[in-house]
């Protein structure tokens, strides 16, 4: 990908994503942390667009910002007496070491391997193709995923149901 727009966009988005992600870890206030996480998600969505994955980019915004970030916010507001701080526990140094190690290894592998780079251009349109694949080749995993979602919903409701909740509608 050599055209100027993409390159410029990539560097801006990369800086945004990584910067926001680093701040998420560094910032002390949990709500700020979630807001920065949203920025990071948006940055990743932008990166998807530079990778010509328009459908995934939109889904990223829809699910991660519109749903998961909101769930995190809900988790925060529903636990009012818990701390709002986002500080590290006693695992700080081991975790840091491990994270650096893992990321370093992956970066090393990324540069060390000679990938079979294809010469094709970006995808023209992915939504239709993904739809076809999902309902054809990956139909079974697709159904399983929907069952998973359903059971997750039921599980979540069962978990937060207060003990002795009245049966049926009020």
């Amino acid at each position: 990908m050599e055209d100027t727009g993409t390159v410029v966009a990539f560097w801006i988005l990369a800086a945004l994503t990584v910067g926001a992600a680093l701040s998420v870890a560094a910032v002390r206030n949990l709500i700020h942390s979630v807001v920065l996480l949203i920025v990071s998600f948006a940055g990743v969505a932008g990166l998807y667009i530079t990778l010509s994955a328009d459908f995934i980019a939109v889904v990223q915004i829809l699910i991660y910002i519109g749903a998961i970030a909101i769930l995190l916010i809900f988790a925060i507001v529903l636990t009012p007496r818990a701390g709002r701080l986002n500080q590290e526990g006693f695992m700080l140094l081991p975790a840091l070491a491990l994270a650096v190690l893992v990321a370093g290894t992956m970066i090393f592998v990324a540069f060390d391997t000679s990938w079979a780079i294809s010469e094709r251009d970006g995808f023209e349109e992915t939504a239709t193709a993904i739809g076809d694949l999902l309902l054809d080749k990956y139909a079974l995993p697709f159904e399983i995923a929907s069952v998973l979602l359903l059971s997750a919903i039921i599980g979540a409701i069962l978990l937060v149901r207060p003990e002795g909740a009245e049966e049926g509608p009020e």
Binding site: A21, A25, L96, A99, I107
Partner: peptide, 30 residues
């Protein structure tokens, strides 16, 4: 020019930050 490695590096950094947070943070939401 932007190549595969660039994206992989960003992915690795995100993964590293996430790993660090999930291990080190005290707060469940963290």
């Amino acid at each position: 020019s932007v190549d595969l490695e660039h994206f992989l590096v960003i992915g690795a950094i995100l993964f590293g930050i996430g790993l660090y947070m999930s291990l080190a943070k005290r707060n469940f939401v963290g």
